[in-house]
Design a protein around this nucleic acid. Structure first.
Length: 493
RNA sequence: GGCGGCAUAGCCAAGUGGCUAAGGCAGCGGUCUGCAAAACCGUUAUUCCCCGGUUCAAGUCCGGGUGCCGCCUCCA
């Protein structure tokens, strides 16, 4: 099957053809390190994480570059407000970013370049543009002259007249055209600066991505990604700079992820509805957040709310319940020496055949522009099928069970590796979930366990009235009990 | 003002010309259970915002309307 990708540049799904067979170069715009990561950053990170994971699972050697913007107005502002150097701010938030990403199970990109470590490349690029006549210097600022570049607007589907009519562009009389953008900025008194042919200054925002993608992936590479808000002006400007400098296309495929809304509203500082990743992860297992995001297509907006995460948690519990059943059955099989044969040998082949089919369907969904929502549908089909097998288990010979279990494990490994979920041991997952829920609800584990023990002794004495009274008491706290021959376990609903 | 997107069950959400409109959550009936929970089985959209059109065939294409949203300014 071919990999299809919706290319923002053409607004169509296209068949993906890498420049170099078997290899993929992908550049994604990372964060500006001036604050902690919020759920929007998390979505972008998870989306491209899954893209890279899937391409790798298909055998591509993927070089994934995600940058850090570590010098910029907002970083300087924050440093001034706190009375510290800009480096302290950027270091702090890069570190926080790395912690969040690790917690979310996001695989570290192949290269994570920082703007400040590529000054020479940026200066060379700006110089190149100046020499070619695409850039002009005014008072130590260098601007890109869009009038000299006739393809401006190709990515975002705008033309110059429309944008001029829009008129909401910043007023700056140094520029020949209001849409010209800064490649290099003269540094003001007290601001950090680097020496350059235009005097002391610092890079404009867009130039770093052009310089760093070129350094690590070449003049033209396969995929460029980012949030949909970056289409204009950031990516438009990147294309203009790079293409003007090299005469070649910057990237063949442009992928943009949709936004996260909060309770149906746009997330914004003024509404005060920014959710830092760290806050969310206090209340939910990271895979809950991943599952929540992957249940929608990456280009659609997702609407974050407590209810929607709670729902995703329930779904994830369904998955881990099955993984736990598998684990227990595996344990049972190891100490089982019976050699009875299966009642219906064809059912065994039937299971194996259907597992195979689900892997194919999963991959087909992922091939179709990374349709994780559809792929998850097949994951849940696999959950149901595995549960069927577990119900059916008594009729199947041990050797066949072992075979089937090995196969289910393989299937879930594939799904889990691609989506970055189901990566925990089932018992660990439930333990961590229980801990999180207890903390969130302010419940005391000792009290609960004491009641559970009291109920267990009541049950031994067949004092059902007492047992049910305790069940009811715990139910008020949203605690659900599960009796089994080996004792009673509980979890929080 | 310009550009673009979305509208599918109680909720979330796939599906972009053709077998029975995925999947999750919630609900209902059943099996299992001392009672439950989990799991399983069955069930829940004669229909995809509205009106017209194209077609043998449309949720899916075209035209119009209504509603919601995003971008055009730093933003994942």
């Amino acid at each position: 099957m071919f990999q299809k990708i919706f290319n923002t540049a053409t607004r169509k799904k296209e068949i993906f053809e890498p420049i170099k067979k078997g290899a993929v170069g992908i550049y994604v715009c990372g964060i500006t390190a001036y604050d902690v990561c919020h759920i929007g950053h998390a979505r972008a990170a998870v989306v491209f994480d899954v893209v890279v994971r899937y391409l790798r699972s298909k055998g591509y050697a993927v070089t994934y570059v995600k940058n850090f913007t570590d010098i910029d107005d907002k970083i300087i502002d924050r440093a001034n407000r706190e009375g510290v150097g800009f480096k302290e701010i950027s270091e702090r938030y890069i570190k926080a970013h790395d912690e969040d990403m690790a917690a979310l199970g996001v695989i570290t990109p192949s290269v994570t370049p920082r703007a400040t470590e590529h000054m020479a490349e940026m200066i060379a690029l700006v110089k190149n543009l100046e020499e070619k006549g695409y850039a002009y210097c005014v008072d130590g600022d260098v601007y890109f002259e869009i009038g000299k570049y006739n393809q401006y607007g190709s990515l975002s589907g705008r033309n110059l007249e429309e944008m001029m009519a829009g008129a909401r562009v910043d007023v700056n009389d140094k520029k020949k055209n209001p849409l010209d953008f800064a490649l290099w900025k003269n540094s003001k008194e007290g601001e950090p600066f680097w020496e350059s042919p235009w005097g002391k200054g610092r890079p404009g925002w867009h130039i770093e991505c052009s310089a760093m993608s070129r350094r690590y992936l070449g003049e033209t590479f396969d995929i460029h990604g980012g949030g949909e808000d970056l289409i204009f002006p950031h990516h438009e400007n990147e294309i203009a700079q790079s293409r003007a400098a090299s005469g070649k296309p910057l990237a063949h495929y442009w992928i943009h992820n949709g936004f996260v809304k909060i309770n149906s509203e746009k997330m914004s500082k003024s509404l005060g509805n920014i959710f830092p990743v760290k806050e969310i992860l206090k209340n939910y297992h990271p895979e809950v957040l991943r599952l929540f995001m992957l249940q929608s297509h990456y280009r659609s907006p997702v609407d974050y709310s407590d209810d929607s995460l709670a729902e995703a948690r329930t779904s994830l519990i369904r998955c881990y319940t099955t993984l736990k059943l598998m684990k227990d059955l595996k344990g049972k099989l190891e100490s089982d020496s019976s050699s009875a044969s299966s009642k219906n040998p064809e059912t065994v082949e039937n299971y194996l055949g259907r597992f195979e089919k689900l892997i194919e369907k999963f991959d087909e969904a992922m091939d179709d522009d990374f349709n994780t929502a559809q792929a998850l549908g097949h994951v849940f089909d696999m959950i149901r099928l595995t549960n069927n097998f577990i119900v059916d288990e008594k009729n199947i010979a041990s050797s066949d069970k072992t075979r089937i279990l090995a196969e289910t494990t393989k299937v879930f490994d594939h799904f889990g590796t691609v989506l970055g979920v189901l990566q925990s041991d089932a018992d660990h997952f439930f333990a961590s979930d229980k801990e999180t829920e207890l903390r969130k609800r302010g419940l005391n584990i000792d009290e609960i366990e004491s009641l559970v023990r009291q109920r267990e002794s009541a049950r031994k004495e067949k004092d059902w009235a007492r047992a049910d009274a305790i069940r009811k008491e715990l139910a008020v706290l949203h605690i659900v009990l599960k009796d089994s021959p080996h004792g009673t376990s509980w979890m929080i609903e």
